[in-house]
Simulated assay, not measured.
Amino acid sequence: MRVVFRCDPALRDTLPAPVPAREALPGWLRDMAPRATSELHGGEAVRTVKQCPPFIDAMSHGFIIPLPCDVRIEAGRLSWDWDIPLLAAALHPRSPISFHTPAQLEGTPLHRPGQVAVKFNSFWTIEVEPGWSLLATHPVNRDDLPFRLLTGMVDCDRYHDVGILFPAVWTDPGFDGVLPRGTPVAQCIPVRRESLTLQVETLGDGEAARYDAAARALLEAPGHYRRAYRAARSGAAEALAQPGGIEPQRADPA
């Protein structure tokens, strides 16, 4: 589907653009082995998640919003040196990060007394096709990042005159270092806005037989899901899902 991103004209040549999630797979996924020794299986080599298509496909779906500049974290203080020009929109944010007061999360498991929630400011507006919303969530399977994005749903077919703000809680209080420009801030997935009809049934004789046949094939033939069920992909996601896996097209710097 078509997704339109717009930014201030003064930032067009310097602001990192959103990228397909399949082009921002992390370096650790490239570097990990396709098989590992399992003591639970008597030292047998077992396939790692690098050979799990659902794991890879989830990380590769939608697009990534990147951090617009380096952000340094020292002793819990966040700072940046970003020489941003004069912008056309007077109310446009100028800093990459702002903050939520702790009281706004009070009553949720995300609340940390005395700890503010960071808010990644967006420098892109996002427009999707009519009838679609945008699910914005933490980059999938990225527990290596020192923050955890709060998940939200935005009706970007209507809300596209300003950018989305991405709130997050800081999960690694001991982190000191730099979040580089381009670090994945949010993974966004377009979803159709429609009601669900849930139909609950029991397995009939035919379904039970197909269940056993599918389960047997999955147990006896590694890679059966990929060969028999998985829809074709392109790029890094497709390559990583093959036995052995290969390097992604692009790895983010985080």
Score class of each variant (00 low, 15 high):
V4M: 09
L11G: 11
R12G: 10
D13V: 06
P16K: 06
A17W: 12
D31S: 00
P34H: 05
E44M: 08
A45C: 00
Q51Y: 12
Q51C: 15
P53T: 13
P54D: 07
F55D: 05
G62L: 11
F63H: 06
I65L: 14
P68R: 13
C69N: 05
A75E: 13
A75N: 15
L78F: 14
S79V: 08
I84Q: 00
P85Y: 01
A89P: 05
I97E: 09
A103P: 00
Q104I: 13
R112Q: 15
R112K: 14
R112I: 15
Q115I: 14
Q115M: 14
Q115P: 15
Q115K: 14
E129F: 07
G131I: 00
W132H: 14
S133N: 12
D143M: 01
L145R: 05
P146E: 12
P146L: 15
P146R: 15
F147T: 07
T151R: 00
M153R: 09
M153D: 13
C156L: 01
V162P: 00
A168D: 05
D172E: 08
P180M: 04
R181E: 05
T183S: 13
P184M: 01
V185H: 02
Q187N: 02
Q187W: 04
P190E: 07
R192I: 05
E194G: 06
L203F: 13
G206V: 12
A209Q: 15
R210D: 14
D212G: 02
A215L: 01
P222G: 04
Y225G: 01
R227I: 07
R227C: 06
A231T: 10
A231L: 15
R233Q: 14
R233P: 00
R233I: 10
R233Y: 15
A237I: 08
A241Y: 04
G244T: 01
P248N: 04
